[in-house]
């Protein structure tokens, strides 16, 4: 009786896995919602400063980055569709394109950030400003920013920084999935992990869709 070997059967519930992953995505959404809430409260109390500070952000760069992220979302969708159809090679290429677009977004963001560093706008504390001295990064003799603008740039760095961190996580995840696709363990039948990686990537895109107008457009 015991010499009968059964093939190992893994029970797989794709729909349940996806639902669970959506739940995780909602926790991510609420992480960002807290930032958006703080942004809207401070915006309503420091409207003029927020508008002035937002003018120093380059709308052109923001628009280009938005288009880059939207394009990367498209290539992600097409990559998953290709894998579902069985064309692993196309799926892998499209995943690499998605990865490259994510990197392009980060590089542009990096240039944007470094320009802000040079103007000493990085994380100045309102308390330090109120006490008459800026953050340690503020060079002596340069002008102090009004508290409202300090809040704006603080939120700008925290929110785009947390967003960039998600881009990095998504990009690393893509490389891992790419490796698994090369090995063959992620394939036409077993594409759940690419699907979840895609859902994660699209959520990061959705968050950017709201960050973009709030920082670059409503100045």
């Amino acid at each position: 009786m015991s010499d009968i070997t059964h093939p190992i059967e893994h029970h797989r519930d794709d729909e349940g896995t996806r639902l669970g992953f959506w739940l995780f995505l909602y926790t991510e959404l609420f992480l960002f919602a807290a930032f958006f809430l703080v942004y809207s409260v401070y915006r309503s109390s420091h409207l003029e400063d927020f508008k002035l500070a937002a003018e120093s952000l380059n709308t052109g760069i923001g628009t280009v980055n938005t288009i880059i992220l939207l394009t990367s979302s498209l290539t992600m969708v097409l990559s998953l569709d290709a894998l579902k159809k069985g064309s692993v090679k196309l799926a892998k290429t499209l995943l690499l394109v998605t990865f490259a677009l994510g990197m392009a977004f980060l590089v542009i963001k990096g240039f944007e950030w470094s320009a802000k560093f040079e103007h000493h706008l990085f994380l100045q504390t309102a308390k330090g400003i109120a006490a008459g001295h800026g953050s340690p990064l503020l060079t002596p003799g340069s002008e102090m920013l009004p508290v409202g603008q300090v809040l704006f740039f603080g939120l700008y760095f925290i929110m785009t920084g947390t967003h960039a961190l998600h881009i990095i996580i998504g990009a690393i995840w893509m490389l891992i999935v790419f490796f698994w696709m090369s090995k063959g363990s992620v394939n036409q039948d077993n594409h759940g992990v690419l699907e979840r990686c895609g859902l994660y990537w699209h959520l990061v895109d959705v968050i950017w869709i709201f960050l973009f107008p709030l920082y670059y457009l409503v100045a």
């Binding site: 498209l74 895109d205 107008p213």
Partner: peptide, 14 residues
């Protein structure tokens, strides 16, 4: 506009 865009991503891309 952002909400419409987010809805498109959620509904079709996701």
């Amino acid at each position: 506009v952002a909400s419409i865009k987010a809805a498109l991503v959620l509904y079709f891309f996701m």
